[in-house]
Design a binder for these strands. Sequence first.
DNA 1: CCGCATCCCCTCAGATACTG
DNA 2: CAGTATCTGAGGGGATGCGG
Lengths: 127, 127
Amino acid sequence: MSTKTKNGKRVFLQNEDCPIRNVVSQVGDKWSMLILFSLVEGPDRFNSLKTRIEGISQRMLTQTLRDLERDGYVNRTVYPEVPVKVEYKLTSLGEGLAKSLWKLVSWANAHHDEIRNARREYDRDNG
Amino acid sequence: MSTKTKNGKRVFLQNEDCPIRNVVSQVGDKWSMLILFSLVEGPDRFNSLKTRIEGISQRMLTQTLRDLERDGYVNRTVYPEVPVKVEYKLTSLGEGLAKSLWKLVSWANAHHDEIRNARREYDRDNG
DNA sequence: CCGCATCCCCTCAGATACTG
DNA sequence: CAGTATCTGAGGGGATGCGG
């Protein structure tokens, strides 16, 4: 994550070799985490995911699944039935990611009210 | 995070009350985590942060610090010296967030090569 | 059923110039 | 030193229509 040190403080780099950026920029988008946690409960099909993840468009579901597949988090299997059935499934890498994200999720749940209060207070005092 | 259940599967909602979305959409942007981890090492000043976080513009540093302050992760203190000194410091909420992010960070470090390999392979086979 | 292609808007974020 | 203001381009993401 950081490579240099300057006056005893760490200097943070942001290039394409930064693991943080490479993981977070993917997982931090609008839909990735919701898909990831949907698949934690087991493999699922395209339209089932589309139904379960409220508000996602077909376009974004496809695109986000492709990106997750590209990074090795998700496997895509096509069953040549009629009509076609496509199943998405976490890889072990994806499961590891979801697991390490879980701590963040539970923290978010536990402190959600606190955050919203801070937000309201800030908005009241300022803008 | 999820409120409903359908055929035994969880249905994920994405409204403004979703803690995941409220936390991740803030922390998942381009600079927040780097600022957060810079401040884990202790309070710091505007220009010091700007130097330590490679590539960040003045504009984005200001804006991201404001957003972090708004959510209650960061405190801003102005010392009326000449020239002005402004110090940014994690709140206990911000420290809790950073701590719960740390697991993700170490996971990212550990699996970075794996991800980049998957990416290369995917790009070779496809586009 | 599972997409891809297109259009189009709107926000994010970089560059640059100016203030207390 | 620590910002604000404005302009601008790139891209995220929705709506819609077509194809295997």
